[in-house]
Nucleic acid binder design. Sequence first.
DNA 1: TCTGCAATAT
DNA 2: GATATTGCAG
Length: 344
Amino acid sequence: MIKKLSNMDYNRERCGQYIEALEEERRKILVFQRELPLCLNLVNQAIERCRRDITETATDNVYGQSECSEQTTGQCTPVLEQFLTIKDASTSNDDVEEEFEDEHGNHDPDKDSDDNNMKSDWLKSVQLWNQPDPLLPKEEQSQQMMETVVKRDESMSKDSMSNSSERRKRETERKQRRCWSSQLHRRFLNALQHLGGPHVATPKQIRELMKVDGLTNDEVKSHLQKYRLHTRRPSQTAPNNGNSQTQHFVVVGGLWVPQSDYSTGKTTGGATTSGTTMTTTTTTTNGIYGAMAAPPPPQWPSHFNFTPSINVEEGSGSHSEEVVVRCSSPAMSSSTRNYYVTKN
DNA sequence: TCTGCAATAT
DNA sequence: GATATTGCAG
């Protein structure tokens, strides 16, 4: 009997812990509820369910029943697991195309307007501007996102507090440097693909197709300029000397995409959805380069490896407070980058 | 206004 | 040296 009672307490405690964990998760999701409406819903449901389980168990205990363990493991956990699975799918960066299509076709205006009211523009855009590594576990991703937001806030307030008026003036003069995250770049590629390639698409068209809050024509224009520069004829002074970091590229709908991304299905949605929009993607890597009017660069800049633009540096203790999120552009991978074509 | 190129800043 | 921002001409 005593054993039963202690078992009940233990199970109730476990339920409580579940709820706590779910609440924590919910807080994280709330910040990004626009991208994770389903997750939010599921977590809410899970929390409610667990709470109900606890109260029901409490009333059941009057009759000496200890079903919490069954309910905990048989109900709470599956809900949580289900939530995690769905969350995983919904936050995956691999289904950018779905996202893309959704925004074009099945966009829910009500949901959108609600979300727009709930969140400021900078917060919405920061999700794309500073996406965490899609390869990282979801927990770390959301942590990264939170850190990103926090660090941005911190840096903003710090700047406004301590810096001289001259610097402040300069900051207001020149907009803050922003990085193109891998997801944002994928959107960019997606738009390019829809528009028929980098030399046909215009910045405005791309921006409209990307549908990213806060993204300006200038930024797209700049990125497009860089992209076009990279897709030009490669420099003869940069032979492929077997560098292990050398990345091969394949043509996807007239776009140069890292082969790894292409082969692993991590590239633009057009490439992964095998034939919805692309026409030249079924070819293998062999012979593709020759098919292009302008051969691909022998090496792609490290940034175009589609690595996330966020560098997360963890301190020795790997505590979240020590995580530093920063734009990686000036100090990116030091791999050889003789890919730029010297202009005429 | 939009675009592309080039200079400049980071 | 790479990338993002800004300026400017067409």
